[in-house]
Computed example of a mutant assay.
Amino acid sequence: MNKGRIKWGMLGGGQGAFIGIAHRIAAYMGERYELVGGAFDVDYDRGVAFAKALELDTDRVYASVEALIKEENKLPKSERMEVVSIVTPNFLHYPMAKSLLEGGFHVICEKPMTMTAAEAEELQELVQQTDRHFCLTHTYTGYPMVRQMKTMIADGEIGEIQRVDVQYYQGWINPFIHEKEKRKSVWRLDPAKSGVSCCMGDIGLHAFNLAEYTTGLQVDRLLSDLNYLYEDNNLDVDGTVLIRMGKAKGVIRSSQIATGEENNLTIQVYGKDGGLKWCQEHPTVLTLLKEGKPLQVFKPGNPYNAQLTMDSTKMAPGHPEGIFDAMGNIYKGMAKAIREEQAFEGEYPTVQDGVRGMQFIEKVVQSNRDGNVWINL
C-alpha cells in the first residue's frame, strides 16, 4: 500500500469551473491529497494552460480519460494516480467512472452518479468486482451539524420518527426559463446531458439523500408532482414529492424557479419525543425542539457533540465552517478508506447512495408521468 499523500487526478474542473475549485480546496484542506494531473478540459490546450497556472507537470495533462488511464498505468505504482475525481456534466459520469474502475483507480464522482438506475447498479457491481473505493460527493452530508443530527437521531434523542420535511429552493433557472432561446443555452435543461430530470435530479436528489442519511430510514413509497412551466421544456424545474419511510411520512420540496432564493436547503425531522432542524445557509446551528422546554442550539466545536461531529470540525467554537469544509470532510473520509484507516460510519457517501439516488429520480419522473400516483421505491 502506498504511503504519504494520495496522488490524485481530475476529469473536468478546469478554468472557470466553480465545482473544480471546490474539489481542490476540499482535497487540499486535510493535507491528504496531491493533485498530479488530469484531463481538465475538452480542449486539450486549455487544459495544459490551466495546469501551468497551477504549476502542475504538463506531461500529466491528458486529452481524454482513456489517455489518462493508459499513461498513468505505465508509471511505477508509487508514482501513478490512485484516485480520480469526476467533475464533468452528468452524461459523462458513468462512462468515465466505469473506465476508471476497470483501469484500477479509486473514484470520487459528482452527483448524480449516472444517467440511469441501470447504469448505477452496474457501477455498484463493478465497485465490488474491482475492490475499489467509490465516493459520491453529496457534500451536505459533510457538515458537522448534519452529522450531529444523524447521530442524535440514531441515539434516540427525538424518539420514533413521525415526519420528515426537506426543502431545497434555488432561483437560478428563473432568468433563463421564460425565453425559448435562453432555455436552450442551459445544459441542465438538455435531457441528453442532464438525464430524465433537471431540478429533482440536481437538488431534489440532495434533499432525498439528506432525508435518508440523517434518519437512517429509507424512502419506500413516493408520489410526485413536477412543474415544467412550458410545454416545449423537457425537464422539470420545480416539484413536490410526498414520501413514506415506514411509519414516517414526509415531503421533499425542490425548486430552481424560487425567485430570489440562493441555496435554501432545510431539513426538519420530527419524532415522538422531539424535533431537529438544520438549514444550509446557517450551517453551524442545529436546533433541538422538545415539548414544554426551551429550544436547544447545538454548534460545532463544542465537546457536547458526538465523536463523528468533532472529527468533522476543523475550527474552535464560534468560527464558522462552510461548504468547502463539508466537502473536505468527505475527501477526508475517502482518504481514510484508501489508506485503510479506521473510519466512522457515514464519513462519505458510497456507490450505494448513488444507486438509491438514481432509483429515486426515475421513480419521481414515473410517478408524475403516470398521473401523480404512489410508486414503490
Rank of each mutant, 00 (worst) to 15 (best):
N90V: 14
I69G: 08
E66W: 07
E102K: 14
N73V: 04
L92Y: 14
T58G: 02
K52V: 04
T88K: 10
D43M: 02
R46H: 09
K98Q: 06
L68H: 06
F50P: 00
Y94M: 10
M81L: 12
A63N: 04
E72Y: 04
R60Y: 11
S85N: 11
N73W: 10
L75K: 12
P76D: 14
L92N: 13
G103I: 00
I108V: 13
M81P: 02
C109E: 08
N90K: 11
K111E: 10
L54A: 13
R80T: 01
G104V: 00
E110H: 11
K77M: 10
N73Y: 10
N73M: 08
H93G: 06
A51I: 02
A97F: 10
L56D: 01
L54K: 13
E66I: 09
N73F: 09
I86T: 06
H93T: 05
E55D: 14
A97D: 12
K98S: 01
D45P: 13
V61D: 09
A97T: 11
M81R: 06
S78P: 06
P76L: 04
I86H: 05
Y94L: 12
K77P: 06
V61H: 09
K70L: 00
L75Y: 04
R46K: 15
P89M: 07
V83P: 00
A51T: 01
P95F: 07
R60C: 00
Y44V: 08
H106R: 04
E79D: 07
A53M: 12
V84T: 03
P95H: 11
V83H: 02
G104H: 09
E72D: 07
P89Q: 12
A63T: 01
C109Q: 08
K111I: 09
V48D: 12
K52W: 02
I69P: 05
D43P: 02
T58I: 15
A97C: 15
D57M: 07
A53V: 03
E82H: 06
K98C: 01
S85G: 05
D45V: 14
F91K: 12
N90E: 08
K74C: 03
C109P: 02
L100T: 06
V61N: 09
K111F: 08
N90T: 14
D57S: 03
K98R: 15
E79M: 00
V42W: 13
I108M: 12
M96P: 03
Y62E: 07
S78M: 08
E71F: 01
V87H: 06
V84W: 02
K111S: 11
P95Q: 13
C109R: 05
G47R: 07
L56F: 01
D43S: 06
V107P: 00
G103W: 02
L100V: 07
S64H: 06
I86S: 02
V65Q: 09
T88M: 10
V84M: 00
F50E: 03
M96V: 01
D45L: 14
D41N: 15
L100K: 05
Y62V: 01
F105C: 08
E79C: 01
